[in-house]
């Protein structure tokens, strides 16, 4: 049976009017009488759909329009043009029925009560989202266990480290069991262990509850671990939308063959995809090879190549 897409975005655009002023006292005085603004196109006619249960990586350099798009989908920003819907609702009206089913976690933002233990903030979310107490207690304890928060939830949030706070934030954002998760840099500033823990938690949550996840991250490891599909955005426009594997195929023309010889020496050869078999055969014929690996170029390099293919505006 066909299912409706969870997220539908059609020709979505957002233009910010940014004040412009030259430096100096004279320009300052002039701006009192006449204020100039410049239109900055943050998102430019973007279209895509996300099916239920998908985990989609939303990639792009700083200022590409990722966060602006997520904020429009979460109802924080009103689009300048185009349409979007999430779970059949138009986000810009911030209907309560939608807000009860989504969450937006921003890695650099605190949504919990700063001075109180997280347990108090959790209780507040219970009341705000009208979660029946029995369900709340069950899910709260489940999240505490999954994210290993036992020793953290009774400390004031201000006393937690960045990584600890992020884990607690994520738990607080999921208490109402959202069906759609917008995760904006959820692992930013965290150490490798914490990044891995959050990644595996998101994957587990997606599997367990069938939630749809849209994730932005500068850490490609996040994307590789979680997302089969990626949308690459640059200068507010979509450059690529498809499987992560096909992104590598399309933009990574070279592969790298690495061989280790009997004497311990390592040789690396880059070759175009079509010539990789011949290059490997030559290496094997000419050397005393004990180990061999063939790899695509790192995904970071692939993405970089993709951005380079799009001239700056």
């Amino acid at each position: 049976m066909p299912t409706e897409p969870v997220v539908v975005v059609e020709q979505l655009g957002k233009v910010f009017q940014v004040p412009v002023r030259e430096p100096g006292l004279r320009a300052s005085l002039k701006s009192l009488l006449h204020r100039e603004t410049r239109a900055v196109v943050a998102v430019d006619a973007v279209s895509f759909r996300i099916e239920p249960g998908e985990v989609v990586g939303f990639l792009g350099p700083n200022g590409a329009g990722k966060t602006t798009t997520l904020k429009m989908l979460a109802g924080l920003l009103h689009p300048t043009s185009g349409n979007c819907s999430v779970l059949g609702h138009e986000p810009k009206g911030r209907p309560a029925a939608l807000l009860r089913q989504i969450t937006l976690v921003m890695g650099n933002r605190n949504q919990l009560q700063w001075d109180l233990p997280a347990l108090d903030s959790f209780e507040l979310n219970r009341a705000i989202y009208r979660i029946p107490r029995a369900d709340f207690l069950r899910l709260r304890d489940e999240l505490i266990e999954l994210l290993e928060l036992q020793t953290l939830v009774d400390k004031p949030v201000r006393n937690l480290s960045l990584g600890e706070r992020m884990k607690v934030e994520i738990a607080g954002s999921l208490l109402h069991q959202p069906k759609v998760l917008f995760l904006d840099e959820p692992t930013i500033g965290l150490d490798i262990t914490m990044q891995k823990r959050i990644r595996s938690f998101v994957a587990d949550y997606n599997k367990r509850y069938g939630a749809t996840v849209m994730l932005t991250s500068h850490y490609m490891a996040d994307v590789q671990a979680l997302c089969k599909r990626v949308i690459v955005i640059h200068h507010g426009r979509i450059l690529f939308d498809g499987a992560l594997a096909s992104l590598a195929e399309r933009f990574s023309l070279d592969k790298t063959v690495t061989v280790r010889l009997a004497d311990g020496e390592e040789i690396k050869v880059n070759a175009p995809r079509g010539e990789i078999a011949a290059a490997t055969g030559k290496l094997l014929a000419e050397n005393d090879v004990v180990d061999l690996t063939i790899e695509d170029a790192p995904i970071e390099d692939v993405i970089e190549r993709l951005f380079e293919s799009e001239p700056a505006k």
Partner: peptide, 18 residues
């Protein structure tokens, strides 16, 4: 987990919930 997925969590009336 028994929370309704349609957003109407629980059976509390709106006034009571507020």
């Amino acid at each position: 987990m028994t929370v309704s997925p349609n957003g109407s969590l629980g059976a509390e009336s709106k006034t009571h919930a507020m």
